[in-house]
Design a binder for these strands. Structure first.
Length: 195
DNA sequence: AAAAGAAGCAACCGCAGTCGC
DNA sequence: CGCGACTGCGGTTGCTTCTTT
């Protein structure tokens, strides 16, 4: 997984690619002590070889304590569809109405799940003119009718984050889920490490 | 059991807007 | 008022995992 991370040389100042657990902990710790914001200087001060943008994204999408991961509920899906029909691809705006959900998550969800259903529905209705559909975004107007949440809902299995365990030696549950750690784990670690 | 293809997700990139100097 | 730095957003890409053959 880390094979593509360019952290190999002395001039590799900016890391890219997946975050390691060490980096996550550094970021969590730093924000817990200093607060978030001013991401560029935060990244530097925390000693992370990441861009401020990268830190911000990681924090907002994964590390924040209030981020909910896991199944999108039927209610949430319905809400996403309604709000998307209303606002289009304003993911951050939509995300604000779904506590704990991030714009990235909603965007991915939309693209991978709902759009698929729309396409299938479109194929089903070939011949039905989608002329009122201007483009991608307009297909949202069809969503509420063609994509009923009750049967459109799929069981979404959240991917367990598989951190780089070699880089971290922390108090992880070793018996079950040895490769699986959650944000609760991370935060408990943070609480243990930080003060 | 292995290979190929499809699906899902995390992260990066580029652009536009905002703010401070 | 202009400029540069920073932030936030949406689109896109690439990797991993799952499913099918």
């Amino acid at each position: 997984m880390d094979k593509k991370i360019c952290n190999n040389s002395q001039d590799a100042e900016v890391r890219k690619g997946p975050w390691t657990m060490e980096e996550d902990l550094i970021l969590i710790n730093y924000i817990a002590n200093h607060g978030e914001g001013v991401w560029n200087s935060l990244a530097r001060s925390a000693g992370l070889k990441r861009t401020g943008k990268s830190c911000r994204l990681r924090w907002l999408n994964y590390l924040r304590p209030d981020v909910r991961r896991g199944n999108i509920t039927p209610e949430e899906q319905l809400l996403i569809m309604e709000l998307h029909a209303k606002w289009g691809n304003r993911w951050s705006k939509i995300a604000k109405h779904l506590p704990g959900r991030t714009d990235n998550e909603i965007k991915n969800y939309w693209r991978t799940r709902i759009q698929k259903h729309i396409k299938q529905a479109d194929r089903t209705f070939t011949g039905q003119n989608p002329t009122q559909v201007h483009h991608d975004q307009a297909s949202t107007s069809q969503v509420s009718s063609s994509c009923r949440p009750d049967n459109a809902v799929e069981t979404y299995s959240p991917p367990p984050f598989e951190g780089n365990m070699e880089t971290f030696h922390g108090p992880f549950p070793a018996e079950s889920n040895e490769n699986i750690w959650s944000m609760e784990d991370l935060w408990s670690i943070q609480l243990l490490n930080g003060d």
